[in-house]
Amino acid sequence: MAKWILFVSVLILSQWFLPWYFLCFVSLVFALIFSQEKRAFLFGLKTGFTCALVWVGMALLKDANAEFLISKKLSSVLGVESFMVFLGVGLLALFVGMMASFSGSYLKRAFLT
């Protein structure tokens, strides 16, 4: 549990101060350090899911501060329902985080163990 709290903290900090793609870097490094050989897929999924949670949570927070105008406008720009906008944000973070985590796990397996 502690390692996931650490991951979320580092992820939020990096996203706050650094460009968005540091999400990949943090996920990759996290996997390099903490992933286990037999559970790489599950670990990657968990990492991706955590990234998605952080991104969707932050998007919701900012949307609520703007009286939900952002998701409303974005949904009309994209021609979809509001929840689809959040779904899109979540899937994007999940995919990018998961791929980076897989990369980290396999790099660890191939070069560090």
Binding site: Q15, W16, P19, W20, Y21, W55, V56, M58, A59, L61, K62, D63, N65, A66, I70, L74, G88, V89, L92, V96
Partner: peptide
């Protein structure tokens, strides 16, 4: 996701909730 093509915006950069279009304070 950071570059975009032609008229397609850089999706990652745009949808980033920390500094993309969600940041509207």
């Amino acid at each position: 996701l950071n570059s975009g093509f032609g008229n397609i915006p850089p999706v990652g950069k745009v949808l980033d909730p920390f500094s993309g279009i969600w940041e509207q304070r």
